[in-house]
Design a protein around this nucleic acid. Structure first.
Lengths: 230, 230
DNA sequence: CGAAATCTTGAGTATAATCAAAAACGGTGG
DNA sequence: CCACCGTTTTTGATTATACTCAAGATTTCG
């Protein structure tokens, strides 16, 4: 969630003056991979990205999902080696910014550096919740939790009304995010549909009973550290 | 792992001039709790701390373990509300530092701010690995992984030779860190002892076959972003 | 329209959870 | 130093959740 959406106007203006390169990404395209030593970071303008770690062979864990406004790999400004892979779910538009430019800007504009740092800390808070989700909750509960998180984050940046959003993932990808098998993921979603909790057709998720979904998912948005009132 | 151990001498000196309050913590004592709005952070001088999140009733997930030199709740400088609880495993010594003092120092010394930010990013990298550990690895493998991580981190700060360290936790606490039940934790440890992988007596952990332990735990320390050669 | 990918369902299995009780351990006070 | 008490660990038995394998249905996309 390192996000430019939290920035104040002056900071956004400063960021806008940075030299950047626009690019389009096809679905399932890697932006950077584990082991890479990138010299630029990536501002997501449109679409969804995710980060994953590869465990043994043919297993992977998705560790976060990013939406428009986020800078998923801002960390690479300070950490040389990538310890995760950044990939597009959908067709995306991104702006690449050189690390050197970001570093210079942060020195000139300490408030921006602070805002970036804060965003990093929110990322960490989201990771903590993700650990708790995968470690403690049932398959049903953790699925509901992830959906609530997405709806809440997308609402905060104006990409959802809080009950409905794009969810352009396969069930296998959802399973990899939640530490479940694809088969079990399918059954959990079937049960959620049967209970009338959600509708999931094509790439559109709708929470039919938002309150019940939050209840099932044990969802409390405090960890997102949103400044706006919900 | 927000850690003062990575700081350069000049930065350590700057940090040393901050006003602080020394305190001793009894075992199992909370430093800050979920929902608190602290005005100070805590530098761990001696002992082990951990952070946890409480899920439903009588379930909790431990999300990280901290050792001497770490500042586990540096995040609270920028994030108002605590989304986790910070607790002592053992008897600890800590130094409390007011947020205002840290903020001032960061403005005066941008290099220190940068070093803190970088530490924050390593925290995030460790959380990602923790997610992958709990989400993808078997009980045996994730236990081995956690042990390898602890041994490696403690070696990096001179508190272990890389094969042996203090592990002042109950099996229930280990289980809460790994997303396992206490009963299963006990069986996993029994198996690891039977295989001659580890020795675990009292509060001392020894890797009897370090290479095999790393193999079982699928451990690759890249994500710790250690600067020193191991 | 056809091929490939994705999703669904069924059947059997494995890993880990739960419940319960006994054994071992660690600290305390006599 | 030893006996006692509470905590922690161990073990056994049973159950539940989720995984794997496999095949068929459906959807998506070129």
């Amino acid at each position: 969630m390192v996000s430019t959406n939290d920035l104040e106007d002056g900071e956004k203006a400063a960021l806008g003056k940075l030299p950047f390169t626009l690019a389009s990404l096809a679905p399932q395209q890697d932006v950077v991979r584990e082991g890479d030593r990138p010299t630029r970071s990536c501002l997501l303008l449109e679409g969804y990205l995710f980060t994953s770690k590869h465990i043994a062979e043919d297993r992977r864990q998705i560790t976060s999902i990013y939406v428009a406004g986020d800078i998923p790999d801002l960390q690479s400004v300070h950490l040389e080696i990538m310890d995760m892979t950044l990939t597009s779910f959908t067709h995306c538009k991104v702006a690449y910014i050189q690390h050197s430019a970001i570093k210079t800007l942060c020195l000139e504009n300490p408030r921006l550096a602070l805002a970036f740092w804060r965003s990093t800390l929110i990322d960490a808070a989201m990771y903590r919740e993700w650990i708790a989700n995968v470690g403690q909750r049932s398959a049903l509960s953790r699925t509901a939790h992830l959906m609530c998180e997405l709806l809440t984050r997308l609402k905060a940046v104006g990409l959802s009304d809080g009950t409905s959003c794009d969810l352009p993932t396969t069930q296998t990808e959802l399973a990899d995010a939640l530490g479940l098998s694809a088969v079990h993921m399918s059954r959990v979603l079937r049960d959620m549909r049967a209970d009338g909790l959600i509708q999931l057709r094509g790439r559109r998720l709708t929470a039919l009973k938002p309150a019940a979904l939050a209840e099932v998912g044990d969802f409390d948005p405090t960890y997102l550290h949103l400044r706006e009132k919900l």
